[in-house]
C-alpha cells in the first residue's frame, strides 16, 4: 500500500534542481498559510510565501527553506518553483541574525516599504529558526 501512496516532488530554482524525490506527504508554505499535499490532490496552483517546506519521503523527512515562488500540483507531480531553496545546513545563522537586525532598522514610510520590511523580517526570522 505504502508504495502506491507516493507522488513525485521536485524543487527547482533558477540555479539548480534542488530536489527530485518520491514523497508521501508535503507541507508547503503557501502565501496565506501552510498547505498539505497528499497523493491524488486536485490540480493546484498557488503562490508561496517565505517559510519551511517539509517533505516526507520513505527515507525520512526533509526540510527546506523556501523564499517565495510557486507550487503546482498536477497529475501527482508536485513542482515547486522558487528563487531560493536551501537546506537548514546551508543557512548561515550569523548572516541571518545580521539580516534580522538590518531589517529591524528599516524605516517605513509607505505601504511598499512596510511590506518590504515585513518580508525581510520574516525571511530573517525563518532562516534563524531553521538554522537552529
Amino acid at each position: 500500500m505504502a508504495s502506491s501512496e507516493i507522488f513525485h516532488c521536485s524543487v527547482v530554482t533558477p540555479e539548480r534542481a534542488v530536489l527530485e524525490c518520491e514523497a508521501k506527504f508535503v507541507a508547503l508554505p503557501a502565501w496565506d498559510g501552510e498547505v498539505g499535499i497528499l497523493k491524488g490532490r486536485a490540480p493546484l496552483l498557488c503562490k508561496l510565501g517565505i517559510g519551511r517546506l517539509r517533505i516526507e519521503t520513505a527515507a525520512g523527512t526533509q526540510v527546506l527553506f523556501v523564499d517565495g515562488g510557486f507550487a503546482e500540483m498536477l497529475d501527482n507531480r508536485l513542482t515547486i518553483l522558487t528563487e531560493d531553496a536551501r537546506a537548514p545546513e546551508e543557512l548561515d545563522r550569523q548572516a541571518a541574525s545580521a539580516n534580522l537586525d538590518a531589517a529591524r532598522g528599516l524605516t517605513v514610510t509607505d505601504d511598499a516599504s512596510f511590506e518590504a520590511r515585513q518580508k525581510a523580517l520574516q525571511r530573517a526570522r525563518t532562516q534563524l529558526r531553521l538554522a537552529e
Binding site: W31, P43, L44, L45, C46, K47, F70, L74, L81, E83
Partner: peptide, 22 residues
C-alpha cells in the same frame, strides 16, 4: 486543466510576470 488557484489567476500572474523577467 481545471486548476485550483490560490490566490486568483490575475494576482498570480502579477507575481509570475516579474519572475519571468528576472
Amino acid at each position: 486543466v481545471q486548476y485550483e488557484f490560490s490566490p486568483d489567476p490575475t494576482e498570480l500572474l502579477n507575481e509570475l510576470l516579474p519572475a519571468t523577467v528576472r
